[in-house]
């Protein structure tokens, strides 16, 4: 197992290098640049050159890449070009906790709603309850997050005034847990709906498959009640494919919430990603790319490790 993890980690290094090369090339190929975003149009070309020289933007692309790579290898992601002088790592660390909190809460919310519904649907397939759950989850999948978020803001925040329209907390107010939760509810709920819907479908089909297996009949023949059979003998088998889903969801913790974060003015990584992409803030984009690439690799590795824990037939 340990040697498997080491092997996988080593295999990830060329993969990550490839990802950085590609994303560096694509960003540089995109028209425009940080200079045109920042500079006053009336400024002289010499000022522009001075800026480019200062940040090394006049050098050939591959030199820029190697410089960036060298710095990154030493843990230095550089400074933001737009918010001048602010280190990228500080920028990310300021926002990361917000995103993680939001994603964690919404994922847990999605799981605790979706898994029981999925299991129940599978236990009583093709009944009214199953059809209701199915229709509900298709609605959830089909509803765009941005629209749903905006509707909730309009109805619940603007019209009814039950929830704040955005942000993590009330500005300039002292810290209060309730205030934080109050701000968290809507964005977490919006994010959870899409995951919830997909997860319900996955759980249903996986459990439906498992409940047809011979060992479920064996468990029934032992005299256990249906509930115990499903939870003890079915669920552990049914969760194996769901683990993959969670592994694949992990990287979306960084980018997946971008639109929802934007709508709810949630100062997280996702909105930072979008902003820096529009402003051509190269160091920030690259740092976030690397972080999400690492998360993809880690997520897959975690899923594989979880497989081995859940399924004794798998050995590494």
């Amino acid at each position: 197992m340990v040697s498997y993890i080491i092997r996988r980690t080593l295999m990830a290094i060329p993969l990550l290098l490839g990802i950085t090369i590609l994303s560096f090339a694509i960003i540089k190929a995109a028209p425009g640049g940080p200079v045109s975003m920042l500079m006053d149009p009336s400024m002289k070309p010499s000022d522009r050159e001075k800026f480019e020289e200062k940040y090394g933007l006049n050098e050939p692309v591959h030199i820029q890449y190697f410089k960036w790579l060298g710095n990154m290898a030493q843990g230095d992601f550089g400074n933001s070009l737009i918010k001048r002088g602010v280190p990228v790592s500080e920028l990310i660390m300021n926002r990361l906790p917000n995103t993680l909190l939001l994603m964690l809460v919404s994922t847990i919310l999605a799981a605790i709603v979706a898994i029981p519904f999925g299991i129940y649907s599978a236990m009583r397939p093709y009944t009214k309850i199953d059809y209701t759950v199915t229709v509900g989850s298709f609605l959830g999948v089909a509803t765009p997050n941005f629209w749903f978020g905006l509707m909730l803001i309009m109805v619940l925040s603007v019209n009814l005034g039950w929830f704040p329209t955005g942000g993590v907390s009330t500005l300039n107010a002292p810290f209060s847990l309730w205030d934080r939760i109050h701000h968290l509810i809507l964005p977490a709920f919006v994010l959870a709906t899409a995951d919830m819907a997909a997860l319900t479908r996955y759980t249903r089909s996986s459990m439906l498959d498992v409940l047809k297996q011979d060992y479920i009949r064996t468990a029934m023949s032992k005299g256990f009640m249906e509930k115990k059979v499903v939870l003890k003998h079915g669920l552990r088998n049914g969760m194996i494919p769901i683990i993959t889903l969670f592994g694949l969801m992990l990287p979306s913790f960084i980018g997946g919430a971008a639109i929802t974060e934007k709508i709810f003015a949630w100062p997280g990584i996702g909105s930072l990603f979008i902003d820096s992409a529009f402003q051509r803030d190269y160091p920030v984009i690259m740092a976030l790319t690397v972080v999400s690439a690492i998360l993809v690799v880690v997520g897959n590795l975690l899923a594989d490790i979880m497989y081995a824990i859940f399924d004794p037939r798998i050995e590494y």
């Binding site: 297996q213 060992y215 064996t218 003998h233 859940f310 004794p312 037939r313």
Partner: peptide, 9 residues
């Protein structure tokens, strides 16, 4: 072959 639960000892 399939009558025993694969994930339980």
């Amino acid at each position: 072959m399939t009558s025993l639960n694969p994930v339980l000892t």
